[in-house]
Write a protein that binds this DNA or RNA. Structure first.
Length: 572
DNA sequence: GCCGTTTTCGGCCCGACTGTTTTCAGTCG
């Protein structure tokens, strides 16, 4: 996929152009870069398939940019970009990562001091060469040094599952303040993106000053970037920024809509407002000077003629048009799940007894749980062999007797291994005795695309296999997906009735949102599981659900929204 | 440079905060 490479070049071209003049060409390049970044299809394939015309079908790509993409595919270079680099030989994308540094400052620092890299920048700041420059000063110089320090320990984006508890802690503290009327998570955390750059929090209050002062003095804050009457921005010791915005309660809905983003979604909604002769900003929806909405997000969307759009869908990926036509899908809700079928017990080295897992499931309102321990190929995980599985089955039968009165049932499955030849590591005569069988790849992950696809398809065709766990094997920020032909896998899933898992583990979230969309389109059913190795991890379900929501999955696409009786029909 | 349920030309989302300046450009979201 050359999408990301070209996107990066377009971003940099925009930056270079911006150092000369911030006209709409820069915006066009930035938009094109964003659109390429989020494009599912490979631009190179589009080009090989349909030529320039195909490229021009991509929104934000016109004749000129299509030619540039063609040039890159053919020659590996874009002449205009090379020219711009020669004119301003600065690692522009690197330097503007320093908080407070933008392209204009970067250009001046190159011209005056020859700064080309972050290293040069750091040296110039340390030698106090920046402060005396016109337009700069002591504070700017210090901020640059601090920004560089933070970058050095910056882990980049954090996993949603890691950052969410931190957000909740801060929100809890804010809620305890009597001046605070309402709070909400906003930004990409509210949209439940799988990784989060920084945290955005919105507060409704009539005393913003008090809230702001309280916020910037919270423990763990290493640097206050900005603090104004309605907004402040800080850097936490955990390595990320938190932005707080305070508005009056009457504007809470419009502020939340604005602050949740995405940026592209906001631009799209504001354009709709303009077309209707309205203005949308964080204070409300306005007709002339008259405010016609703002208290709730529903009001805001309705006022500009849209139906309410769930935060997880706000990526400007067609949702605005559907909201305009009142045709949005009703995506799965956080309370629709009736049970978790990918749970490990202490039989395979998990932490809890089967009974403990079941009791926890009952307490969080589930109607069933599925125990699916690892099988024998995974020795390191104490995988169960055939006789152990049969023994476990007897045990579960007995435990189920106890839960009969509670209208709860433990289903018995396993998470078997798809071996490198596509066979399953447990004999069929045992597999067929289980309530259901999950199969997953846990070894030989680097084989080529055709072999991996054939391997998984062979497993899917085993009549005893019901579910494929974490189908692409990715570990976010750690390990790429296995090479697979997803189209073929989806086709086979549809033919065989195989269920694909959405694994809720924060570093898996596998299938991911765009694949969920593809699966839904292909008519393939999915199941959201946690892969819990101890009972409290069943709470991770919300991250799987959020991924499903980002993939626009509806309740009917997800089989564990069904009661046990109906669910089991999928496993016959 | 892109794009069209006002347009093939003339628009392109909108506002907050800082630092340096003395009224605003640059940066951020």
């Amino acid at each position: 996929m050359k999408n990301k490479e070209i996107a990066k070049i377009f971003f940099n071209i925009a930056s270079f152009l911006e150092t000369e003049k911030a006209d709409f060409r820069t915006i066009a390049y930035k938009r094109a870069a964003l659109s390429l970044e989020s494009l599912d299809e490979d631009v190179e394939e589009i080009y090989l398939d349909k030529g320039l015309a195909g490229l021009e079908e991509i929104p934000t790509i016109g004749k000129n940019l299509a030619l540039k993409i063609e040039e890159y595919i053919k020659t590996g270079k874009i002449k205009e970009y090379e020219k711009l680099k020669k004119k301003l030989p600065v690692n522009i994308d690197e330097i503007i990562r320093v908080e407070g540094m933008g392209v204009k400052k970067a250009k001046i620092l190159y011209q005056k001091l020859g700064v080309k890299t972050i290293k040069d920048l750091e040296k110039s700041a340390k030698d106090h060469k920046i402060a005396p420059l016109f337009g700069f000063g002591e504070k700017t110089e210090n901020n640059i040094l601090q920004g560089i320090e933070f970058l050095k320990i910056d882990k980049g984006r954090s996993l949603l599952g890691f950052i969410m508890p931190e957000v909740e802690k801060i929100i809890l503290k804010l809620e305890n303040l009597k001046e605070v009327k309402k709070t909400s998570i906003a930004g990409s955390a509210r949209r439940m993106k799988e990784t989060i750059g920084d945290i955005d929090i919105l507060v409704a209050s009539d005393n913003p000053e008090k809230v702001n002062n309280f916020f910037v003095s919270l423990p763990g804050i290493k640097k206050v970037w900005a603090k104004g009457p309605t907004k402040s921005s800080v850097h936490l010791k955990e390595g990320f920024d938190v932005d707080l915005r305070i508005v009056k309660e009457e504007s809470f809905g419009s502020a939340l809509q604005y602050f949740t983003g995405s940026k592209e979604h906001n631009i799209a909604t504001r354009k709709i407002a303009i077309k209707k002769g309205l203005k949308l900003n964080e204070y409300g929806v306005f007709r002339g000077k008259k405010k016609i909405a703002g208290q709730t997000e529903e009001d805001v969307y309705n006022a500009i003629g849209l139906s309410y759009i769930e935060p997880e869908m706000r990526e400007d990926d067609g949702e605005v048009q559907l909201a305009l036509e009142n045709k949005l899908p009703k995506i799965i809700g956080y309370k629709d799940i009736k049970g978790d079928l990918h749970c490990h017990s202490n039989w395979d080295g998990g932490k809890n007894l089967i009974e403990e897992m079941a009791e926890f499931a009952i307490n969080i309102g589930y109607e069933y749980i599925g125990i699916s321990d690892h099988t024998k190929f995974l020795r390191i995980e104490n995988g169960l062999n055939e006789s152990q599985l049969l023994k476990q089955r007897e045990k579960i039968k007995k435990i189920n007797e106890k839960f009969k009165t509670k209208n709860f049932i433990i289903l018995h499955g396993c998470e078997a291994n798809i071996l490198s030849d596509g066979s399953i590591d447990i004999k069929d005569e045992v597999l067929e005795k289980l309530d259901y069988v999950i199969a997953g790849v846990h070894s030989s992950m680097k084989i080529d695309r055709k072999k991996m696809t054939d391997r998984i398809i062979k497993a899917m065709k085993n009549p005893n296999v019901d579910i494929i766990s974490h189908p692409t094997g990715r570990l976010i920020q750690k390990r790429d997906e296995y090479q697979i032909d997803l189209e073929k896998i989806l086709k086979t899933a549809k033919e065989t009735g195989i269920i694909l898992e959405i694994n809720s583990w924060p570093e898996r979230l596998d299938l991911k949102d765009i694949y969920i969309k593809m699966a839904k389109k292909a008519g393939v059913k999915m199941i959201i599981n946690t892969d819990a190795h101890e009972k409290s991890q069943m709470h991770l379900m919300k991250f799987g659900i959020s991924q499903a929501r980002r993939g626009w999955a509806e309740k009917s696409d997800i089989i564990n929204t069904l009661p046990a009786g109906e669910l089991l029909k999928y496993f016959i």
